[in-house]
């Protein structure tokens, strides 16, 4: 059995890393969603983090910790700068503006000398280890648990429920929204930095429109009732294509079918606590 486990780990460790990174991305978008912001900019922030961390390693020879820190810092700064004018938008208009921002970032990656154009950056050393990902996720989960009962968490909740009312209650909605946006960008950036250091390679097309939608899909699919749902949803969407590999040419079609079925039968996402409670009641009755 230990042999089997070794083979399993050698085969699927990248998948496990990917699941961890996707969970981080899900948390990053959950943070913005929990403050009522629909952002499609998280893939771009992930990209900025990935390129920054990779360049810090390749060009500056910085230790991994510092490279990751830079990979979180720069997206945070960019989010701060674009967040100030952008966050007065709401709903799909904000989604559109962040989508536009993402496209601009992608084109900049394509055209800068230092980012290697469409060739991207290759030869990024393998630095990410499982404990890095686990440790960061533990810290994040702890933070989210604390956040829920904190003043900030309640302010987010109030803004999400009704922004006008929140403002009337004296909540500085602009600062809180900016905080959620910037923190989301930092988490996405760190996730990008981690990803870059176990896939040897980054290129602009990994951070365009489709990945942006994928991140959102994972979160909504899992259920946005709590921070657990997005993590579960994105993990499932990362694993599903591997599980469906035996379907060969039809695996993506079946992937789509599963997405539809889950949405129809679990309209609040996979991690639906109300549903769990109902099932428990039914079970005990």
């Amino acid at each position: 059995m230990t042999d089997d486990l070794q083979v399993f780990w050698a085969t699927y460790n990248t998948l496990v890393y990917t699941v961890g990174v996707h969970a981080m991305l899900a948390l990053s978008i959950y943070l913005t969603l929990s403050c009522g912001l629909l952002s499609l900019g998280n893939a771009a922030f992930m990209g900025i983090g990935a390129y920054t961390a990779a360049l810090a390693t390749l060009r500056l020879g910085l230790p991994f910790g510092e490279a990751l820190a830079l990979g979180g810092l720069l997206p945070g700064l960019v989010a701060l700068v674009i967040g100030i004018p952008t966050l007065r938008l709401s709903g799909v208009y904000l989604a559109m503006a962040t989508l536009g921002f993402g496209e601009v970032v992608r084109v900049v990656f394509l055209n800068l000398e230092i980012t290697g154009g469409s060739m991207g950056l290759n030869g990024i050393p393998m630095k990410t280890q499982l404990w890095h990902i686990v440790a960061i996720l533990v810290v994040l989960v702890y933070g989210f648990v604390r956040l829920r009962r904190s003043k900030i968490g309640r302010a987010f909740e109030a803004i999400k429920e009704d922004e006008t009312a929140a403002k009337a209650m004296g909540i500085n909605t602009t600062s809180y929204k900016l905080l959620a946006f910037v923190l989301g960008a930092i988490i996405a950036g760190v996730a990008g930095g981690l990803n870059a250091h176990f896939t040897f390679f980054v290129s602009p097309r990994e951070y365009g429109f489709d990945p942006a939608v994928d991140i959102l899909t994972g979160a909504i699919f899992g259920g946005t009732g709590s921070f657990v749902g997005p993590m579960v949803g994105s993990a499932i969407l990362a694993i599903l294509p591997e599980l469906l590999r035996f379907l060969k040419a039809f695996r993506l079609a079946v992937n789509g079918l599963i997405l539809i079925l889950v949405v129809i039968y679990l309209p609040n996402g996979i991690w639906d606590r109300k549903l769990f409670a109902r099932l428990r009641r039914k079970g005990s009755a």
Partner: peptide, 21 residues
Amino acid sequence: IEDEQAKKEEAINVFKKLIFQ
């Protein structure tokens, strides 16, 4: 024969599956 979907993570997964499994 394995599908790698032209995605980098999938390509890595497929390579590892082919090599180790």
